[in-house]
Design a protein around this nucleic acid. Sequence first.
DNA 1: TTGCCCATGTAATTTGTTACATGATTTA
DNA 2: TAAATCATGTAACAAATTACATGGGCAA
Lengths: 213, 213
Amino acid sequence: MPRQRAGAHGPELPATAWAVLGLLSFGTELSGYDLKKWADNSLRFFYWSPASSQIYAELRRLEDRGYTQSRVAASDGLRPKRLYRVTPAGRAALRDWVRHGDYEPTVLKHPTVLRVWLGHLGDAKTLRRAVEAHRDAANEELTAAQHAHDNAPRTWPYPVAVTQWAVRHAQAEVELADALLADLDRIDRRARSGAQRTTGTKITTTTAKTTTR
Amino acid sequence: MPRQRAGAHGPELPATAWAVLGLLSFGTELSGYDLKKWADNSLRFFYWSPASSQIYAELRRLEDRGYTQSRVAASDGLRPKRLYRVTPAGRAALRDWVRHGDYEPTVLKHPTVLRVWLGHLGDAKTLRRAVEAHRDAANEELTAAQHAHDNAPRTWPYPVAVTQWAVRHAQAEVELADALLADLDRIDRRARSGAQRTTGTKITTTTAKTTTR
DNA sequence: TTGCCCATGTAATTTGTTACATGATTTA
DNA sequence: TAAATCATGTAACAAATTACATGGGCAA
């Protein structure tokens, strides 16, 4: 006999679908376009941001499942938009996922660290620049997260806690990048002192762009 | 006229392909199976780990591009395996990506935080458990990263720096989870004290599983 | 009046996962 | 001798991205 999946109610949906449905669970009626914007402003801090085309696809699927309902709002003069809202069935399914969904591991893809890992094929200068670019991006994330946190309505305590998490996460990312930069400098210094007479290694002390100065 | 992509040498490959090629760039000849194991032991700390089937697919693509070469090693008695190594062209292309590849943003998908974000649909107990499960997983990551760091050969300074980064990253993840747990408790406490006479809210003080005790 | 933002999507493609097939070897 | 593990994959599917189409309003 076929084994039953743990807590199988309907066919399982990926976390991304719950994320989209979740955006609708705060009560407001939203269009696909709105959803994309909200995803960019909140979701993306802890669960990336799907392309608009994917959001539309998810909305279609959610409507097929009966988890959302849509109506066309022809706001006078303006081009009509399709507004989605969550149905009772959708709310129940989402609630069930939040409460009883299986643990899913975090997915992390960090191209900058991948580059550093392959540092034996790079040079100190471009490697440093790559990490600096990442640190700058993390710093911008930090400001954006701080902004999101400040503007989060206090009526929703969980999103407030999550934006706080996002702020701390961005801070950690910046610190991690700085520590990595320090390690890169150490590697560079050791290479410089150790490769005094190695073939093809021209030592130009002027190139050094040290932080400790 | 068609605009040229920044630094277009061949058709651009995704970071994942460079990750697989990168595993081969440390000198050893590896089979697809070996590659999967190495990915699980090193790559996965900063750049997830592709399924074996995807590794085989990437290897085929890399060989099509002329970036890898393979031979069948029929180690007597044992089932023959196909061993891959990087070609000079592959090394050059990888080197070029490390040095001049465009900045790619980090991808983060954090289902646990997503759950917390939707906390208004959950209950304090299961929410707490979900975050605790994540913290435990992060703690295991920490031990694994520490192990990887301790066992990393000192001849490769960059992987050493990266495993160090992975250790610090896992530590940060644990701390982030603990801070989030504290915030969840605060929310729970506020809800308990504020909902004294709300309809349908039965207050059972015995259910409380407080950390500060 | 040209070009950009709003808004809604479709089509094609790529990326990645799950499930399965196969056969040999090692371990319980 | 049953099972797990090694090793190499294929097939089918799902998830996600890129590129494109469309048309209206609005600002330069």
